[in-house]
């Protein structure tokens, strides 16, 4: 089911949680709402789920306005950040809950409920835990049970609030790959909220980057990483070096007072000046991290550190040591007018 959001606004007192949001979610896609805490992503998710009401704007499911529809009637599966499993029910009863509370005439018989619950538990590979209580499960297991419970009512839309937020790093990595595979199997329109860029880029079909109640950019993971639309997206996703044109970005000088954003891996290092706009720098630190080598350099004229990432092969072909005087030049950069979200050019 597709979701259309038009001019959506939400205030908490004088605080603008959502500021004129417009968004189209395609049927069957897995979408990430990415942003720092307080950016409004969770509010947006809760409004879609019917947990909150928007102050103004439209919310359509498959072209149909659902603002007036109660959360119970939206046919939306919601996975809560802290799972909200019913602590007094077994895993089986948790998953069966949505089936048991259906109105009498729609309710399946006990055998059918049993079959469906076990099917779902098998889907999340936890059928062997069916008689345990939530307190007896690990974080990752709770997460999967919460998902199975949400899927039991056969929702048309699945909403997940920081689904991996409460898990430790290793489990988180495994689970997000698992979620991606599961989505490829089920193809339910799904939206998940996260503050972890890696998570969003790895799992989602498309990423919505949010900041201060506004959408900064919508795009595929590749687009938001390789072609950030705003300085915020540049800073929030991946590492970036900033060069103020006036001081030390001669290659961007034509824009006047502006800032050039350059990814660490988009900088070339050379012993001789590549051209007359190359910057002379001194190597301050060299550190090999797995397959890449991180080099920190400083402009002669300032103490600001510029981060550069080289592949190991590239580094090995021309090794550097601390104290080397070299030149740098960006292969790729974007220039934004200082302080304004106004893109001027991209090289």
């Amino acid at each position: 089911m597709s979701i259309t959001i038009e001019n959506l606004n939400k205030n908490f007192g004088s605080y603008k949680a959502l500021d004129n949001i417009n968004l189209e979610v395609n049927s069957g896609e897995l979408l990430a709402l990415l942003g720092p805490s307080g950016c409004g992503k969770t509010s947006l998710l809760r409004i879609i789920g019917g947990m909150e009401l928007a102050d103004s704007g439209k919310l359509l499911f498959h072209g149909e306005d659902v603002q007036q529809r109660d959360a119970r009637e939206r046919n939306v599966g919601f996975v809560f950040q802290h799972y909200a499993l019913f602590r007094h029910m077994t895993v089986f009863e948790n998953v069966a809950f949505g089936l048991r509370v259906k109105p009498k005439k729609e309710r399946h018989n006990e055998a059918e409920i049993k079959r469906r619950v076990h099917e779902l538990l098998n889907l999340v590979q936890l059928d062997f835990l069916h008689d345990r209580y939530p307190a007896q499960l690990s974080g990752g297991q709770r997460q999967r049970i919460a998902l199975a419970r949400a899927l039991a009512v056969e929702p048309k839309i699945l909403l997940l609030d920081e689904p991996f937020g409460a898990l430790d790093a290793q489990v988180r990595k495994e689970l997000r790959r698992w979620l991606r595979r599961l989505h490829d199997e089920l193809h339910i329109t799904s939206i998940f909220v996260t503050h972890d860029q890696e998570e969003a880029l790895e799992v989602a079909d498309r990423v919505v980057v949010m900041n201060k109640g506004k959408i900064e950019q919508v795009g595929t993971p590749d687009e938001v990483y390789a072609a950030p639309a705003t300085p915020f997206v540049y800073k929030f996703i991946g590492n970036v070096n900033m060069f103020h044109s006036r001081d030390h970005a001669p290659w961007a000088a034509e824009h006047g007072d502006a800032v050039a954003y350059v990814r660490p891996h988009d900088i070339d290092i050379s012993r001789i000046a590549q051209d007359d706009t190359a910057l002379p720098v001194e190597v301050k630190l060299v550190r090999a991290i797995g397959s890449i080598v991180r080099v920190e350099v400083a402009l002669d004229s300032s103490s600001e550190i510029i981060q550069i990432e080289l592949s190991r092969e590239r580094f090995d072909s021309a090794p550097l040591v601390i104290g080397d005087k070299v030149f740098i030049r960006p292969r790729q950069f974007r220039v934004f007018e200082s302080g304004v979200l106004n893109e001027l050019s991209a090289a």
Binding site: G13, G50, M51, E52, L53, D55, D70, A71, R72
Partner: peptide, 10 residues
Amino acid sequence: MSSFKAHSVL
């Protein structure tokens, strides 16, 4: 809408 009570699904 600055109301007496915050919205809730409950």
